[in-house]
Design a protein around this nucleic acid. Structure first.
Lengths: 215, 215, 215, 215
DNA sequence: GATGAATGAGCTTTCATTCAT
DNA sequence: CATGAATGAAAGCTCATTCAT
């Protein structure tokens, strides 16, 4: 009995693994249940003993990530205190604060997180990415208002989307989680700097010739 | 029965319009010829009198954009002279140069350009985006080498992808071409600044507390 | 006007030529009117100005051959007097008689005759070959009865079919009409000999050891 | 609704039977999977649970025959020892040798063999017949060279084709395997005699008037 | 005479899903 | 738990043919 139970888990894991690959490669709508079952070494009908529909299978795959993500959204006020960063202009300070923050996060930089945001079209999760982007944008806009930056509100959504998009690209392209986190830190720094430049430049203070490094 | 239209161009345009919508919404593979025909108010078989295959229809849609794009790639040495921009640290100079460049381009910032790059999976154009990103990345890497910037090579591809992604998002979200070009200019400036900050910060010169705007 | 008339004939001939090729290569059912029109350098609709249906086009192609063939069937009593051949055992006599007969026939050994018999399935001519085979078989059976040959009635149809089949193969494989007629003569002689051998062997008279050529 | 059959083999056999009929009647290209499914009493989609494509269904039908056929081709040197036949001029000897040979063959004289050779256009088997004819022709040519028979090389292919064609006609027209084999023996004898007559007549020795049976 | 437009039925194949065993 | 059987809808595409211009 225990052996059978074990066997069941093994197949279940194989199904999840292959589903992950399939959804990742083709997206939800274009993914084929047939293919998942075949690659997992079972039949379609048996797969339906494990998950009652294609969407249920997808849900099983991204449920944890989605909940973690929701938790993050709801509690970001507590976690997310990098505002102090703005008080310093030293990029090394920024990097340290950001590193602490990114590394303190639960393991959300996973392939399944990528799937949740990028491969969920056709499911009830398809709005997650849009929601997240809007959420980020609102954050940006708050900052902009605080900093008195005007004239860039339209770019907020685009920047949020690409900032998130870059994070997802890193997740997609690199397998090692440590490197993923490292690259994400650098990538976000890159955006911070663009953002900071935007603000400073608009106040006329930076960049200016005097700040050019002596070649 | 005796309702006749007899305006080939009209139907052809309707087909192209609906195809544009369909490919834009669902991507090539998931787009349905049946749907396009139905929405264009004709039958599948008649649509096949206009375009001999799904791919031919797609091609008709993006051919011009693709050729314009190839022309741009081949002649960018001639067009693309913003290197002088680097000699100035004044963001208004950058903006002016970039505006001149962006507004001098032929009308490539179209929905069809978006489709060419973002909805072409399954066609022979599916590598266009990857190719473009690699092309941009090589440009970035050259600059990085010239500027002696190290340690960011891995991010090159990601940044290129998101820079392009942002442009495509703008195309996607805004209908008015003038505004599209305006936002693209600002968006690229944003990236320039992130990039510049990356370089300067690595030389330790910027940002520094003295550059903070007085609140 | 006359020029137009000329033009019409030219196109008509092109249509017939291409139809001949198409029907020959694919048979009636699998032939494509589209292909014929395209290869003839016109449109489908225009082709329908010349022939009111696929079958009408086929009919135009084989009508003459069919009538010639029917004439042959109806008057074969008059033409077909090779019975004297049986009175001689000299193959050179047979060959001469057969040559005279074959060369006296109107030009029925044409590609269109081949089409009529071998590519007409799906048309109202599809029984022509069967009919011809049965007709030949009846001739054979008459001869068999006359000659007192028994026990081969079942083979009659098969032999008739293959005798005709061979003639059609020769038409199919050789373009030059003279060579076609020559090969047909030899081929029929081959069958005559098989037939003669059958008869003689059944009477026990041939072949026998005494007839072996000294090696 | 609750009518259940649950005998996979039964349906499978029905499918194969109906496929046999359909391919036999219309040839591969013109056969309709829809029709096969309908006649077998199931749906198209279910048929695709049994065979993954039209070609796979065809293959299932002719695979054994094709392998048997290939085995025959590869081992005909061992089996095929009728050369001794040529040493005798007694047709009864020929018949006995041929009977032994034909009846020793595995059951290749089936409707499916007919389908393999005559209804396979459009499949990867479509060259089988041509290959077989060429193979037979080479045999004939060897004999002709050995016997010093000249001037009939062009007929070789035609004769081979019709000899095979006759065998296939017999298979097509007769259901009883014993009778099929019997008729094939007689039919091949018929060809042997035509062939023998050709040789002898060319040496001038036969037929001659003295061999005429007394009426 | 010639053409483009249009039609409806057909094709092979894949899809997610259900159900009795 | 596992499987084979079955389904209906949809996919891209081709067919012969018709008709107004």
């Amino acid at each position: 009995m225990i052996v059978i139970q074990y066997k069941k888990d093994e197949l279940n894991n194989r199904i999840l693994e292959e589903a992950e690959k399939e959804f990742f490669e083709k997206g939800y709508e274009h993914a084929s249940v047939r293919q998942i079952a075949k690659r997992a070494g079972t039949t379609i009908s048996n797969l339906y003993n494990y998950y009652e529909s294609k969407e249920a299978l997808f849900e099983a795959l991204v449920k944890d990530e989605c909940e973690g993500f929701q938790y993050f959204i709801q509690h970001h006020d507590t976690m997310d205190k990098p505002d102090e960063a703005w008080e310093s202009m030293d990029i090394r300070v920024w990097r340290r604060i950001l590193e602490d923050f990114i590394h303190s996060l639960p393991p959300i930089f996973t392939k399944r997180f990528y799937i949740l945001l990028n491969c969920s079209r056709g499911t009830r999760y398809e709005e997650t990415k849009t929601f997240f982007i809007r959420f980020m944008n609102e954050h940006f806009l708050e900052h902009m208002d605080t900093m008195g930056l005007k004239g860039f509100r339209e770019l907020g959504n685009v920047i949020a989307e690409q900032m998130l998009g870059g994070i997802l690209s890193i997740i997609r392209d690199y397998a090692d989680e440590k490197q993923v986190r490292h690259l994400i830190v650098e990538y976000i720094l890159f955006f911070f700097m663009g953002y900071m430049g935007l603000m400073l430049s608009n106040t006329g203070q930076w960049p200016n010739p005097g700040a050019i490094p002596a070649k």
